[in-house]
Design a protein around this nucleic acid. Structure first.
Length: 406
DNA sequence: AGTATGCAAATAAGG
DNA sequence: CCCTTATTTGCATAC
């Protein structure tokens, strides 16, 4: 187990060094990870190059392992919402995230500015949260195995090829846990769970190329124990994943650069994120309406999923060009809000109503259409809002169920 | 006054 | 039309 961790961590450290971290941060983190982190990849059925957010890396305090390490910086919905009771305080901080439609990486490390300080801080057991996290991994893995088992269509090999077009395959679970102690905890049944589909080895670099790991003797020795399947996997997916011939530039680096440039120029134009968001509507692009300040902000800070970034890039690029053009020509931008394309609305359900809904849900999680209509009327909400609420609630419940004991 | 972010609505896509 | 699963956003509010 040890070897695996080190191997992966090194691989990751290299990636980081390669392009992700501001130079001055590389050193501290690299060493920190090397000694106190481990990575688990459970389910490599669809392997794709990972993408990392520099922002997530530089703003360590933002994601604390509260059982809610998701949102923009972590995709795996299986990791969502641990029961409140299992939340820990500041034991761990997410310091790095990567995500795409098929997988994500979450790296947790002890909170605080312990990077430069006493290394021993890292080794602190933090038993509670570690255990919980492990439980979570297990349940996620089990969850996926069950699902795969049921929908099993004879795709026997652990590596179901054709990575490119499986929008519905469940996301892989990558976790990088801190603390050496975790390594020990991992030995045992967790390994049994994740080994079948386990793929070790070089992760594809941000540019799609393989980041090969230096052959540290110790690690190579460890690799001999690697399951054959894993090796195959690594090879199968380690090659340049010429996945989407569709998207010309799915290169994270381009996105990164663009986002940076975008922000820069936006500011130069004296436009706020909110402005951009609403101005998008006047762009008159087919299915494009305006977006919220939140989304623009997230785009600029790369806190959207990779796919989302790719989808939004052309739109924002179009806006930028448009805006700069009219700026050059001194034309006051006629981007007045044409009431046309509006942005997605989100209704806020007040606490009292929410409580009622929860009460109904406890009694009947899947009310009939009529029942929903009745509830909607009683709470003075739109029927569809209530319906969606139940859907989302069921989703949430399912996650909770699997993340609870196991 | 602008920008982040937590939480969780709303949507997309396949049944 | 509704469901489920996976994802994309946005309201509210903290920063």
């Amino acid at each position: 187990m040890k070897w695996m961790s080190e191997y992966l961590v090194n691989s990751k450290a290299e990636q980081v060094k390669a392009s992700l971290l501001p130079p001055r941060m590389v050193k501290a983190k690299q060493s920190a990870w090397k000694d106190h982190s481990c990575v688990i990849q459970a389910d490599a059925s669809a392997y794709r190059p990972a993408w990392f957010s520099p922002l997530a890396l530089t703003t360590l305090p933002s994601f604390i392992f509260n059982g809610l390490c998701r949102d923009r910086t972590s995709n795996p919905s299986n990791l969502q919402a641990l029961p409140t009771s299992s939340r820990s305080n500041d034991d761990f901080t997410m310091c790095m995230g990567s995500w795409d439609s098929l997988g994500g990486v979450i790296i947790l490390q002890p909170s605080g500015n312990c990077l430069e300080s006493d290394p021993d801080l890292f080794v602190d057991p933090h038993a509670t949260s570690v255990d919980l996290l492990l439980q979570h991994v297990k349940s996620s893995v089990r969850f996926k195995q069950e699902r795969r088992g049921t929908e099993n269509k004879g795709s026997t090999s652990t590596s179901r090829q054709e990575t490119s077009s499986t929008p519905h395959s469940s996301p892989s679970v990558w976790l990088c846990l801190s603390s050496a102690r975790v390594l020990e905890a991992l030995e045992g049944d967790l390994l049994d769970h994740i080994t079948p589909g386990l793929a070790l080895g070089a992760m594809a670099g941000p540019d799609g190329s393989v980041v090969s790991t230096p052959a540290h003797p110790a690690h190579m020795a460890g690799m001999n124990h690697m399951h054959q399947a894993a090796i195959n996997m690594a090879h199968a997916h380690g090659l340049p994943p010429h996945m989407g011939m569709n998207d010309v530039d799915a290169d994270p680096r381009d996105l990164e650069a663009f986002a940076e440039r975008f922000k820069q120029r936006r500011i130069k134009l004296g436009v706020t994120q909110a402005d951009v968001g609403s101005a998008l509507a006047s762009l008159k692009i087919p299915g494009v309406g305006s977006l919220s300040q939140s989304t623009i902000c997230r785009f600029e800070s790369l806190t959207l999923s990779h796919n989302n970034m790719i989808a939004l890039k052309p739109i924002l690029q179009a806006w930028l060009e448009e805006a700069e053009k009219s700026h050059r020509e001194k034309l006051n931008k006629p981007e007045l809000f044409n009431g046309a394309e509006k942005k997605r609305k989100r209704t806020s359900i007040a606490a009292p109503e929410k409580r009622s809904l929860e009460a109904y849900f406890a009694i009947q999680p899947r009310p009939s259409s009529e029942k929903i209509a009745a509830i909607a009327e009683k709470l003075d909400l739109k029927k569809n809002v209530v319906r969606v609420w139940f859907c989302n609630q069921r989703q949430k419940q399912k996650r909770m169920k699997y993340s609870a004991c196991v």
